[in-house]
Nucleic acid binder design. Structure first.
Lengths: 120, 120
DNA sequence: GGACTGTACTATTTAGATCAGTACGGTCAC
DNA sequence: GTGACCGTACTGATCTAAATAGTACAGTCC
């Protein structure tokens, strides 16, 4: 599935959460596709199942996954993200842009990247 | 100057670092303006001077401040940000846009915000 | 010289991340 | 219906990093 970076100072559960979220938003994990089970992923990464569960719980709070008792955890539909998550992202976008603006990164460089990501 | 949020789970030194960076990039702190001394800010926020120093050290690494021995710490010029910082920001921008795109936030909503921040 | 600055250490306390273990109910194939 | 999975929910121990406390030294300024 993926691997951990032990040089990364971030907590393990955050690395897993962010890694899985990335796979979902990039399409590497399709909507309604099953994620690895808590125990299986814990085994594969050689860490405690509790740590995986914590990452999964946060992804569900964000709206990126849903769980079916007894069956597993699945990637959610694109529209399913929690409003709080979207708000967080937009806030972060403004902060990011403010800093880029301060650093005199030209407007064109920013819009170019926006269109690059949106182009498909 | 500003205050701490004890509900915020982030380490204190990160809150201070981010808060000061924000003041610099928004212009609340002008280039070459003096930041509060390590001891003064520690006193004001009722925390340990070491914690302030850590925040200041990171800001200097990012290129947002420079220190003059015996005199104090000052906000840097706009162009002075470390290349590593800029790279981090651009990487984060791409990730952010990827997620917004996945959530079907319209292109127009994003570009509107870009121009809003850049407008002046 | 006295009152400030930044900076660099060591040692200690505290809090959060991580691990270990156990338990319970739902799903599914045989 | 029973065994093998699944998610979920606890308790308690351990380990690591944040934060504190204290001290010290060199530069600046009046």
């Amino acid at each position: 599935m993926f691997s951990l970076d032990h040089r990364d100072a971030r907590p393990i559960y955050e690395q897993i959460r962010d890694g899985l979220r990335r796979m979902i938003v990039t399409g590497a994990l399709a909507p309604d596709e099953k994620l690895p089970s808590v125990r299986a992923l814990a085994m594969e990464l050689a860490i405690n199942p509790n740590t995986i569960q914590r990452a999964y719980a946060e992804l569900e709070t964000e709206g990126y996954t849903y769980s079916v008792p007894g069956k597993g955890i699945f990637a959610a539909q694109r529209q399913a993200a929690a409003p709080a998550r979207l708000e967080t992202l937009l806030e972060r976008l403004t902060e990011l842009l403010t800093e880029l603006h301060f650093l005199e990164v030209p407007l064109e460089a920013v819009t170019a990247r926006v269109e690059e990501v949106y182009h498909d």
